[in-house]
């Protein structure tokens, strides 16, 4: 049984125009279709990477999996039970077991809390252990993320560097002993010089503790490094999914090819035909049906504009792309 399974997971945001626009000018409210019909499963001990440009719905997906944002449609299935209809005990277990690491270490720590209280907050809120044990676990957790407890417990967030803050954020999630960590671009707000250190820490902790993870990044190099499987999103839709090396080394979908081509060509001797992308990336406001990449895709035909080919997640090891036109694409060099 998968740890987390997303079934047709969809989230729309309604943007209502101002009162005057709505009543006098008769402007309708519009829908941002931030995430559309995602199907994916994450197994125990597996790391699923999610890649995509900013605004493609990565954070929205994370928030839904963490139970912080209700889906518009579709299900989040945690160890076999649908969270929307699950009883309180299951939801409480999910709340503890699926923890999130936030993108912005400057915004995600309460400025009025000391480090020890930030890390102890989850166990205290859920009353996981008695106070003494919580204190002990907080100390060893801080040591585990490379922060000397004697030096850091009494500090406030403003007394820490960005990297130290992100370590505190990681400690506050991991002290709960979760089975899944959702990491929403945990490195993107950090200095390039300290990213490697935090990434190593993440992998080391993952090795020791064996949690599974949804790791979001727009950096394919990082994802290639940490993830087992990769899902590529574009404006709310999943474009391609598969084992990470396969997706990065032989991308199928025109969008993935463009994305990877734009990042770097790993081997200069390999000539990979990269489709030129035209048009602007926009927000998915009242998008037409069909593939959202179609307006920018050089290979698109009518079928692409009419229907979107959803991925089949029954086989988690399969490498597949949500594209009608794979047969007309030029072969990729491998």
């Amino acid at each position: 049984m998968a740890l987390i399974e997303l079934n047709q997971l969809t989230r729309h945001f309604e943007i209502r125009p101002g009162l005057v626009d709505r009543t006098v000018r008769g402007k309708p409210s519009r829908l941002i279709k931030a995430v559309e019909s995602l199907n994916i499963a994450v197994g125990e001990n597996e790391i699923l990477g999610i890649a995509g440009e900013s605004g493609c719905g990565k954070s929205t997906t994370c928030m839904m999996i963490a139970g912080l944002l209700p889906p518009t449609r579709g299900q989040i299935i945690y160890r076999g039970s649908d969270l929307a209809t699950a009883d309180a005990a299951v939801r409480k277990e999910h709340r503890r077991n699926v923890q999130m690491i936030f993108q912005d270490p400057y915004e995600s720590l309460n400025p009025r809390f000391r480090v020890a209280d930030i890390v102890a907050e989850g166990p205290r809120a859920l009353r996981l252990w008695d106070q003494k044990e919580i204190g002990d676990r907080v100390e060893s957790m801080l040591a585990g993320v490379g922060l000397n407890p004697g030096k850091y417990t009494e500090r406030f967030p403003h007394e820490l560097s960005g990297g130290e803050r992100q370590r505190v954020g990681i400690a506050s999630a991991l002290v709960m002993q979760p089975v899944m960590i959702i990491a929403d671009e945990p490195l993107s707000m950090l200095d390039v010089s300290i990213r490697a250190g935090i990434l190593d820490l993440f992998r080391e902790l993952q090795d020791q503790r064996g949690f599974s993870s949804v790791y979001v990044s727009h950096d394919l190099a990082i994802l290639g490094n940490v993830a087992d499987r990769l899902m590529v999103m574009y404006l709310g839709q999943a474009m391609e999914v598969g084992p990470v090396e396969q997706v990065i080394r032989s991308p199928k979908h025109p969008y993935t090819r463009a994305l990877i081509g734009a990042v770097a060509v790993p081997d200069p001797r390999v000539k990979r035909p990269v489709p030129k992308i035209s048009g602007d990336i926009s927000r998915p406001i009242d998008p037409p049906p069909g593939c959202r990449f179609a307006p920018r895709c050089p290979y698109a035909d009518d079928s692409c504009h009419d229907t979107f080919l959803e991925l089949d997640t029954s086989d988690p090891t399969r490498h597949q792309a949500a594209c009608h036109r794979l047969h007309v694409l030029p072969d990729e060099g491998l």
């Binding site: 936030f102 915004e107 859920l126």
Partner: peptide
């Protein structure tokens, strides 16, 4: 602010 979301993610109740 995001630290409120973080508190929710850690399981803090509304009153907390």
């Amino acid at each position: 602010r995001q630290f409120i979301l973080a508190a929710k993610a850690r399981g803090a109740s509304d009153l907390r």
